[in-house]
Design a protein around this nucleic acid. Structure first.
Lengths: 199, 199
DNA sequence: TTTTATCTCGAACGAACGTTCGAAAAGATG
DNA sequence: CATCTTTTCGAACGTTCGTTCGAGATAAAA
């Protein structure tokens, strides 16, 4: 009926949904057993334990979003357009994989040891990718805004999505992505006359 | 040596630090006992239980940041300056009360029932306050950016701080606040000549 | 001093947790 | 059919958790 890989996938997808809904530590293996239909002991045939479940979700999701981002900006050479595409891809992927991305964002400190380091290597790589995109897109090297501040401000804007955004709500994912890109690049108040400052 | 209130305060402050460092669910009452010097049972004289500990931290912190924000924008009438002051106050308070604000941001779903609702009433009030500030500050009502998107993008920028920012790092809190305000209001790329678009 | 209210804490309880084990079932192979 | 591998799972183990209880210490009041 189902292959081994498909059953593992089903377990991971279900776990991601429940981790996202109730949090990693509040979710019990018995919860997952109930939701997947597998027995409590049966899940241990597919996974070493609860920690590896979280690790696999995070590692797969991070790898996917990283390679996706690289592909999204690969063909583009214009710095500003590369930044816009990075943002659109991140927000698009986030809204399309809410549960996994919430688990990735919210449970960043729930692993430890080697598993944590593996996931964090991916995170560093992803952050470095944005930093390089940002560095080209910023007007001048002497910008008044630090690169790290800009990068994490953008990540904050985008990753905070899981706390409030509803995919089925009035703002569809595409519009959300466009608006966040515009907000980050041009600001809330697009200065029509930059020389005219108050006073 | 210490009054009842001072000992409760000490318990709450210690709990906030440990909740922030290890997460609410991973922290045990025995951890708090060790950190405060009180006995395990002794803490229950000051607090109903672990949940009330989290509740008190969140309620007090939210009340403080709410009244602080109101005071910060009260005297100002210029819409843009009100927005800038709201941002500066939020970031300033956040960096000055990292542990509590991390617990507020990260453990938003760790309470339930009446306690959760009480905290969420405060959150709604705070969000509404920003929405009203934002509504006046936006250039026109027909802005291309939804009010809710703008508000939560800003909250995301600011609240994400707890995942990366180091108060003792190269960027002092004041500069961080200024840069986030500038980023949100003017964007990464302050459009020097808005009419001159590529192509 | 005796009495009363305030505060502390060692010891334990019951529940829930992640995980393990060995046997049984199901499926593939000869 | 028999044999071997893959997959399932009921039952239990050992640990840890939040919380409680009742006695003891301390301080204030009479």
């Amino acid at each position: 009926m189902m292959t081994y890989d498909e059953r593992l996938e089903h377990l991971l997808a279900t776990a991601a949904n429940i981790f996202a809904a109730h949090g990693f530590h509040s979710t019990t293996m018995r919860d997952l057993s109930r939701a997947t239909g597998m027995s409590l002991a049966g899940m241990y045939y597919y996974v070493e334990g609860k920690d590896e479940l979280l690790f696999l979700i995070q590692e797969r999701c991070f790898t996917e979003v990283l390679t996706g981002a690289r592909a999204a900006i690969a063909a583009e050479t214009d710095p500003l357009e590369r930044l816009r595409r990075f943002i659109r891809h991140h927000v698009g992927f986030f809204t399309a994989h809410m549960a996994e991305m919430k688990v990735l964002s919210h449970e960043a400190e729930s692993l430890s040891g080697e598993r944590w380091e593996t996931v964090n290597r991916l995170k560093r790589t992803y952050v470095d990718l944005l930093l390089s995109v940002l560095d080209s897109a910023r007007p001048e090297a002497d910008s008044s805004i630090d690169a790290r501040v800009a990068a994490f401000a953008l990540f904050g804007m985008m990753n905070w999505i899981y706390t409030w955004y509803d995919t089925e709500g009035p703002v569809p994912p595409d519009r959300l992505a466009d608006q966040l890109a515009e907000l980050f690049m041009l600001g809330l108040v697009p200065s029509t006359v930059p020389a005219a400052q108050q006073g």
